[in-house]
Write a protein that binds this DNA or RNA. Structure first.
Lengths: 244, 244
DNA sequence: TTCTATTTATTGGTATGCCAATTTGATGCT
DNA sequence: AGCATCAAATTGGCATACCAATAAATAGAA
């Protein structure tokens, strides 16, 4: 695996900023200064700053300089957690917490069109259960449709992030096949139907509980599958918050 | 405002990929190909790809090529919402949904050490209420400590993201000063005390409701302040999900 | 003195060129 | 035929050089 140099430099800059406890809005050293300091070309430093910019730490102004957008390294706020460090269990727990509340919220904002689209996804899940590809995609879309129906773009974005994380998770690939081979999808389809029914009734508490139970069932399934030959499986499954 | 070229190119590449509906893992055109196509140097294309890499869309392998990491542009999943497009109300609603559930979850996982640190933050808020800087920082830390006490790094990360969004929000700067000048902080400190009390009791429902009520109060305060001379204020306050 | 216009320096933006890792496929041996 | 080896092409990694926007300094007019 190629360790991209700009990432190293970017992390070093972040560490450096965290150490100094600079105030938001203050000006940072120039690209040239960092280049000389790290003994690299300005190109790499520039790339590192692009990383920090995308991550939201800094703001770059041509001809002026680079400025801090917020306090770096607040003791409780971590940088982005690497995909490899997140286990399926931790991910599902986060989804359970977030999506159950989203379901409750959605019950109060969902429109007829939303309901209709969700129903179409369920029909798709039903008829195309044989196709892993299609039914899995329908699963994802069903959940995201619920998030979208809250009419809150941030809730949809967060929910999307968690699903993207799952797809990127190395361990998911393994679990994915095991789960798909088995017939759990029928159970989950029933869960989905229950959720949609609560949304139809505009029952916030019912929707919350239905979503919670659904993800609880997924967790249970996952747990049952943890009897595996992969020695790292258990530790991975339960990997949780690391020390700050 | 400087529109950074690499952002334009990056967005164009993303749009291009979404259009083609490529499968995950497939190989993308080379940097040189995109450079020629857009009529720019390879440098900007490379910077654009760094953006996509940070955002998690692609994986870059030296000497080999650039590969897709996941499905781009699923109909319901948007790209990241720009900070400028998010109003304080939408942000607070997202926090209310997320943080109230986090509080409920935290009530079951919080440790004595967590409780102690939260108490310290409240004491800081109390004694340093005169200092806007300090009390605001304590506010932030208090909320993030709750998220951290769930022992779930994703929940902490999402919560942190929302607070970072607030800090970056252009409208927040305006509201921020108005709120700080007034004496709402005392009320919010009471809210925080109520939340901590529920956490002490390990009462999940109580914690959920206390957090919900707290952010409801913040929303109310914000709404009261919306009587302003800024013509864009109202629209901004309620800007919500845009059409997909 | 003060304000303004202009020059100069600073700083990020972009392009070009060469280097290193990887892949590909041709070559020759078994 | 099959496989190992090596050379050439491909492709991203990095550095240098010059361009453009901004800010700072300075000279001149009111």
């Amino acid at each position: 695996m190629t360790e991209r140099l700009y990432r190293d430099i970017g992390e070093q800059i972040k560490a450096d900023l965290a150490q100094q406890e600079l105030a938001p809005g203050c000006k940072l050293p120039t690209e040239r200064a960092y280049a000389e300091r790290f003994g690299t070309s300005r190109t790499v430093v520039r790339e590192a700053f692009i990383m920090l910019e995308i991550e939201g730490w800094i703001e770059v102004r041509q001809g002026s300089g680079i400025y801090l957008r917020q306090r770096p390294g607040s003791p409780v706020s971590p940088q982005r957690v690497p995909d490899e460090d997140i286990g399926p269990f931790e991910l599902l727990q986060a989804r359970q917490v977030l999506e159950s509340s989203i379901a409750a919220c959605a019950a109060q904002t969902v429109t007829k069109q939303d309901i209709q689209q969700m129903q179409e996804m369920l029909d798709l899940e039903d008829t195309m259960m044989a196709s892993v590809e299609v039914s899995e995609d329908a699963d994802r879309r069903f959940h995201l449709l619920i998030a979208r129906s809250t009419q809150n773009s941030l809730l949809l974005e967060m929910c999307t992030q968690l699903w993207d994380r799952r797809d990127r998770s190395p361990m998911w690939q393994t679990l994915h096949k095991r789960i798909m081979d088995l017939s759990y999808r029928a159970n989950w389809l029933e869960d989905h139907r229950a959720i949609l029914n609560q949304l139809r009734k505009r029952d916030a508490q019912g929707a919350r509980q239905a979503m919670w139970q659904h993800l609880e069932n997924v967790k249970t399934t996952l747990f049952a599958l943890s009897d595996t030959d992969d020695p790292n499986f258990d530790g991975y499954l339960f990997s949780n918050l690391r020390a700050q």
